[in-house]
């Protein structure tokens, strides 16, 4: 097992290197001269040249990369050209927001998805199964922005139960924090719940038809133990892997959903940065989210190894 984990860790290095090069070079392939953007109204070539020098933009690209990655390792992701604050500070500010939203959405997705998936597998070909599949498909195919707007109309505008937009930190006021995030979390969660439901259903169907489930029944175990212990344990492994990947996607920020609910997370940060050609911010955010995604991927793999006695040896 250690060998397997070592191999996965060793793969991490080239992956991260490749991703960082990609992120760095995309920046330079995009049209527009960052020096010009920074100069703003200033059109004096001398000033522009000085900006170039100051930010190392006059150096060859590989040198620029080395300078950039060197800084990254010391935690310096550069400075936002627009807001004039360190990118790392922006990230530290926004990350908890996105994290909170992602965790809540994931809870919604797992609870709904796994419960619905197990139920529809156990009640295969029944009305339950049919209804769950239709609802699940609807959940997958409903655009997030539409569901978001509908929820706002219903719970904020008509019923007035929840605030339509904005964000409150849970450390300030937990109840209001939940009130501001429950709708976007639901929107994001249901979209994933549909996918998780389908995976859970097919994995459960396979497990329930297996010989070891028949053995479990032959021991006289109750259906509850058969389903939730014997079948579930084997069906859950692929579901967990999927969940980890979906969580990674959530962490990169839900652009539209954050926009609709005015949640100041990664999604909003990156959109603002792209529109303002705030390169350092885009680079920083993408680098952090990509790295997180890769690490989560690794964690999912490790989890898979740990959950699987055959690989654990």
């Amino acid at each position: 097992m250690l060998q397997l984990i070592g191999k996965r860790l060793a793969q991490l290095v080239p992956t991260l290197f490749f991703v960082s090069v990609l992120i760095f070079s995309l920046q330079h392939l995009l049209p527009g001269d960052p020096a010009l953007v920074m100069a703003g109204e200033e059109r004096d070539p001398v000033v522009i040249e000085q900006i170039r020098k100051q930010y190392g933009l006059d150096q060859p690209v590989p040198v620029q990369y080395v300078m950039w990655i060197g800084n990254v390792f010391t935690g310096d992701l550069g400075e936002s050209m627009r807001l004039k604050v360190p990118v790392s500070e922006l990230i530290v500010q926004k990350l908890p927001v996105t994290l909170q939203l992602a965790v809540m959405a994931m809870i919604v997705a797992l609870v709904l998805g796994v419960a619905a998936g197990v139920l529809s597998a156990v009640k295969k070909d029944s009305a339950w199964d049919y209804v769950i599949n239709v609802v699940g498909l609807a959940g997958i195919s409903t655009p997030n922005f539409w569901l978001g707007i509908m929820l706002i109309l219903l719970f904020a505008v008509n019923l007035g139960w929840l605030p339509a937009s904005g964000y409150v930190s849970p450390f300030e006021d937990l109840q209001r924090s939940l009130a501001t995030t429950i709708m976007p979390a639901f929107v994001l969660g249901t979209a994933i719940a549909g996918v998780i439901m389908r995976h859970t259903r097919s994995a459960m169907l396979q497990a329930l038809a297996s010989d070891y489930v028949r053995t479990a029944r032959a021991k006289g175990l109750s259906e509850r133990v058969v389903v939730w212990k014997h079948a579930m344990r084997n069906a859950l492994t692929p579901v967990i892997t999927l969940g980890a990947l979906e969580f990674g996607t959530l962490l990169s920020g839900a652009v539209l959903t954050e926009q609709i609910f005015s949640i100041p997370g990664f999604g909003k940060l990156i959109v603002d940065a792209v529109f303002n050609r705030d390169y350092a911010v885009v680079q920083g955010v993408v680098l952090v989210t990509a790295t997180t995604y890769i690490l989560l991927n690794l964690l999912a793999d490790l989890g898979y190894i740990l959950a699987n006695p055959r690989l654990r040896t």
Binding site: R233, N308, P309
Partner: peptide, 24 residues
């Protein structure tokens, strides 16, 4: 029936390779 199965009435199967739960 569940009370009987595995107690007074037991069965072994044709497929030894897959009849045990791989996770326990």
């Amino acid at each position: 029936l569940r009370d009987l199965r595995g107690d007074r009435l037991a069965m072994i199967f044709q497929e030894p390779m897959t009849s045990l739960n791989p996770s326990y």
